[in-house]
Amino acid sequence: MTPKDMLLGLVIIFAWGFNFVVIKWGLDDLTPMMLGGLRFLVIAVIGSFFFSRPKTPFKWILVYALSLSFGQFAFLFTAMKFGMPAGLASLVLQSQVIFTLLFAVLFLKEYVRPYQLLAIGVAASGLAVIGLNGEDTTMTVLGFALTLAAAASWALGNVTTKGISKKGYDANVNLIVWACWIPPVPFFICAYFIDGSEVMWMNLVQIGWKTVATLIYLSVIATLGGYGLWSYLMSRYSAGTVAPLTLGVPVVGLTSSAFILNEHISHAQWSGIMLVLLGLIMNTLGGLWLAKKRAA
């Protein structure tokens, strides 16, 4: 990568890693369902002026939106509201790599290679250590389980994206933006039945500058800016060059949450974190090695 593009990669890492701290701030003033609905509504309204509507059939956009957007963030925001620390959420959410591999085997009939099985085993053992050692921290079992559900939803979205690409349609930032018109509907329906109309109304009329700044960050910076820059880098470099950048996201998430939110992570959980990161690195480096072997 050129120095300029490496700098853009670092911007993405910090934008996505700090994203979890901002989510925590947003949940101080909004319920999980209202935060999700407003976030995607802002993305859809703003993004539609800059990105053209994809030619992808509506049924595929619907599946994509309900899994990657609604499912992932409904579970994630609820998890962080009910006891999942922001830093750990940024790491545990990366278990989507494990779920994506498993779902690709089930739904796309893809083959899992030996190094991927080993990477899954190492990362899964790390997740087990994190999940079983939350008694000395603010993490709850419910929060941990819901974050895993968010990762599984993300993985379903990844498999859907692959399916869309295989059918010859573009799965780029245009799809991300226009699919954002769909999630606000289930988010607001859930808010009505979970929070009640009075709470929904109070969330709207009491929106302050902090909430506005949170929504702008989550929609404009983390989503439109982050994915826009990501698409730019993916168009210029191989996936093997760009993909490892995501390993920096939980590092930024963990450190920023520790310094800004004063989150405590037990020594055992740090061991689990290292195992998860090791598994993710093994999966990434294994793919790079295989790509180089094929090119040789």
Rank of each mutant, 00 (worst) to 15 (best):
K292W: 13
L118W: 15
T255Q: 10
V205R: 11
I98P: 10
A179D: 02
L175F: 06
M139D: 08
F70H: 14
T140R: 04
I120Q: 09
L41D: 12
F51Q: 06
A119M: 11
G47S: 05
L278F: 00
A191V: 01
T100Y: 12
F40K: 05
F58I: 02
L7R: 00
G225R: 08
A291G: 14
I216K: 15
G47A: 04
V97S: 12
W60E: 07
G168K: 05
M1E: 15
L118C: 14
I61D: 08
L233V: 05
I130M: 07
Y217L: 08
Y192E: 02
V242A: 04
P32C: 09
Q206C: 01
F58E: 00
A191Q: 02
S266M: 07
V63H: 01
W16E: 00
R236C: 01
Y217P: 13
Y115H: 13
M282G: 09
G196C: 04
V63S: 01
F99Q: 09
W25S: 10
F58Y: 02
V92N: 03
F77H: 01
I216L: 11
S219D: 04
L229A: 13
T137C: 02
F193S: 15
A191L: 00
R53V: 13
Y64G: 09
W209M: 14
M6H: 12
K162E: 06
K109W: 08
A239C: 11
G228W: 00
G37W: 00
L290C: 14
S90V: 06
L233Y: 06
G226C: 03
D28W: 07
W178M: 12
G26R: 14
L156I: 12
L224I: 00
K162N: 04
A171G: 08
Y237L: 01
D136C: 00
N262A: 10
G228K: 02
L277D: 09
A222H: 12
Q96M: 01
I273N: 09
I182P: 05
G248L: 01
L142G: 01
L7P: 00
I260A: 06
I281R: 11
V22R: 11
T100G: 14
N174T: 15
A222M: 13
L218Y: 13
K293M: 08
F49N: 05
A268K: 11
F20T: 07
L66G: 07
L7A: 07
F75D: 08
A152R: 04
Y237N: 03
W209R: 15
K292D: 15
A79L: 03
P54Y: 08
G87F: 06
K109Q: 13
V105R: 08
M84C: 03
G131K: 07
V97Y: 13
G168I: 04
G279V: 08
F144K: 04
L76W: 10
L280P: 04
Y111F: 11
F187S: 08
G47F: 01
F50P: 09
Q72E: 05
A15K: 12
L7F: 03
M6D: 10
F75Y: 09
A171Y: 08
V63Q: 01
F49T: 12
